[in-house]
């Protein structure tokens, strides 16, 4: 266990934890976009920055990655911190002018859009938090979507920006997307995502459509469980 100070409060935490986890445990609100408990943090959005004093050195760090250490002093709302968060929000609002999530967040943080930034029209609501990519690769194991390009041309999508060939239609990306950029359209028997339409599997017992057939095949291939066993929904199992 290490003890340190956060916003003037003395706190204790497990060594190896990061500042964000500890702050949240103690009820301190730090905004984030690219952080999710099911995937490893990447430090991409920079909203969670805090000021850390360690020894004589004070610097701005991302709390989602910064490991807690004995004796550090963390401030989560200094002017420098708020300046970074304001810039990040204004930049993202200019990138994704249609995102209601961002607008609501900004409102809560008391941040107005920067009128000098000409709003983009080609990025949709994607903030490039890369949660979807990580979920697809690390959690699902499908690696159907990935990053491409770099800088302002960085994108998320299937290779060659074509309809995904290896997508299994599980929808993990859509569930984890913080800004509702990834669109998944579902009817009872069909699901549309990443340019593909997936046939849904009806439950052998109750008849409810519960998962894409491709997803069940993927699980069957991976785990060796026969398809017949997988064709039963969670509630009927």
């Amino acid at each position: 266990m290490v003890s340190f100070i956060i916003d003037g409060k003395k706190v204790e935490a497990e060594a190896g934890a990061n500042v964000l986890q500890v702050a949240r445990k103690y009820g301190i609100v730090i905004p984030t976009l690219c952080c999710h408990e099911s995937v490893a943090p990447s430090g991409a959005c920079r909203l969670c920055v805090v000021e850390v004093k360690k020894g004589k050195r004070t610097r701005i760090v991302t709390s989602c990655l910064y490991p807690v250490d004995e004796g550090i002093v963390v401030e989560t709302k200094t002017d420098r911190v708020l300046n970074v968060r304001r810039l990040v929000m204004q930049l993202l609002m200019a990138r994704c002018p249609e995102s209601e999530v961002l607008k609501d967040m900004a409102k809560e943080m008391g941040i107005e859009p920067q009128p000098a930034f000409h709003p983009d029209t080609d990025k949709g609501k994607c903030v490039l938090c890369r949660l979807c990519v990580k979920a697809c690769e690390d959690v699902v194991g499908a690696s159907a979507i990935g990053l491409s390009g770099r800088g302002k041309n960085k994108k998320v999508g299937a290779p060659f920006m074509e309809d995904s060939k290896t997508c299994i239609g599980c929808g993990a990306c859509a569930y984890i997307c913080p800004t509702e950029h990834i669109i998944m359209e579902s009817t009872d028997s069909k699901r549309k995502i990443w340019g593909r339409t997936f046939k849904m599997q009806p439950c052998d017992k109750c008849g409810r459509y519960f998962a894409p057939v491709d997803q069940l095949k993927f699980i069957s291939d991976k785990t060796g469980t026969p398809m017949t066993e997988l064709a039963v929904c969670m509630s009927c199992k």
Partner: peptide, 18 residues
């Protein structure tokens, strides 16, 4: 290696042309 990974590399570095 997933094609997504290769495509990421191929589009990240300047020297590559698709």
């Amino acid at each position: 290696v997933p094609l997504t990974r290769i495509y990421e590399i191929a589009t990240f570095y300047n020297a590559f042309s698709l």
